[in-house]
Design a protein around this nucleic acid. Sequence first.
DNA 1: CGTGTTATTGAAACCTATCAAAATTTGTGG
DNA 2: CCACAAATTTTGATAGGTTTCAATAACACG
Lengths: 260, 260
Amino acid sequence: MSDVAEYSEIMPLQRVSRPASGNPALTASVPARRAARCSSCTMRSICMPQGLTSAELERLESLICVSHTIKHGESLYRANDSFQSIYAVRAGSFKTVVMHRDGREQVTGFQLAGDSLGLDGVCSGRHSCDAIALEDSKVCIIPFHLLEVMCREVKVVQQHVHRLMGGEIVREATLMMLLGTMSADQRVAAFLLNLSGRLKTRGYSPAEFILRMTREEIGSYLGMKLETVSRMFSKFQKDGLVDTHGKQIRILDLEGLARV
Amino acid sequence: MSDVAEYSEIMPLQRVSRPASGNPALTASVPARRAARCSSCTMRSICMPQGLTSAELERLESLICVSHTIKHGESLYRANDSFQSIYAVRAGSFKTVVMHRDGREQVTGFQLAGDSLGLDGVCSGRHSCDAIALEDSKVCIIPFHLLEVMCREVKVVQQHVHRLMGGEIVREATLMMLLGTMSADQRVAAFLLNLSGRLKTRGYSPAEFILRMTREEIGSYLGMKLETVSRMFSKFQKDGLVDTHGKQIRILDLEGLARV
DNA sequence: CGTGTTATTGAAACCTATCAAAATTTGTGG
DNA sequence: CCACAAATTTTGATAGGTTTCAATAACACG
């Protein structure tokens, strides 16, 4: 339990109190507008473009603001909400959920610190899914129309936004492949390997971590029932690939998992 | 057979012959560089931004060139090809296919005239899938770095590109939902309804059309075997929802299909 | 007009869902 | 900090849907 990697509350927030800016529409959802301090954020290398001049970085920071905490179970935005901003997860984690008219819903992604959130709203001007915090989390808010302005003026920012959107397209295609061609054990293995890799990128242990989502959410994401997810975990345990105690995961045989 | 909508060879191509431009890297894959004539293209309303001044439209046209025909079964690009351009399908249709290391492959999309193609390469600089013509087809080639330049100068072009990418993200999320939560009959029904709607948007009959893809390709796209696709078609036939003769489809009860 | 590809249909096998019950963990208020 | 209630997880038995294998039929192409 001691040295288990947790992808939560990575760094204390800068508490620069500053009065809200003039825009009431914006401040409605952003009670306290505080400029972000990307330069001192551990997630900088993941969510910020490389190669900015310090003036450009400063300008980018000036349009980003840090929101208050979003509590476990609360939503950052809901499907059909008007699209105004994209978000960077600063600490904590989220799930995105699309809802079918008949009430069935599916998890379409899990976002860790450093991941972006909200691009689903770019096309129609309204969000197409709910984004819900899996634990108490913090996000940076980036008003999209301001980001677009800066994209027009700074090439590396433009390319970063394009890569962000392109990355989302590739990520989803990978998941489609998973849902379309893989068996239940392969899906769960792929899920664990993906999470492991992302935690590693963020500087955490790729072998030992705590799942912030339930079996049901994992199942929804992977297109199967929670009981099946549980059975696959049990199977991997029996085969000596992982060691699970509820939400605590220790990957014992990474290559073995990849071979499933 | 007479009034069956076909989504192929929509309009004769402008054959403006003009010598290739100086860039040998570009002309290698684009034998004859001919400026596109978007203003006279029937797909304009689908693939072009609205609200351009005529000067801007002219400039956008100048960076687009019409490629030679891509024959049935040939590829427009392959996975791992260097990403240079995005494409607009001018006539015909394509499938995009991702390949797993172990040889398994999955169709991730079908593109009709007016659809864009190639955005999968934006993130990594290399294409992440193969794009293969389902019939003899024609595409417009849009060098992405030139499009990026124009995005920085013309706001509506920028917003159009963002919407294009955002639309791809939403499209894939919808497909994930389909793969993750729907039964075989619901998937095939959703596939037919989606195709029907897109043909309608393009001015074709939404009720009567010819499938350009095989049962196997449909199955790959929907995450099931070709035999299952065939059985679902038979079932819909029996239930009086559609009338199928091989690749010819007539939808008899659109609402019934939606209720499946 | 044959030949290879594509589509249809049937029967059996297999995988996952469903239903059910017990065990465990988590959250909350006393 | 404990105790209790609620939520989550595990495991088993059975049902159901999809795949697999196989054989035939229809179609497309040279």
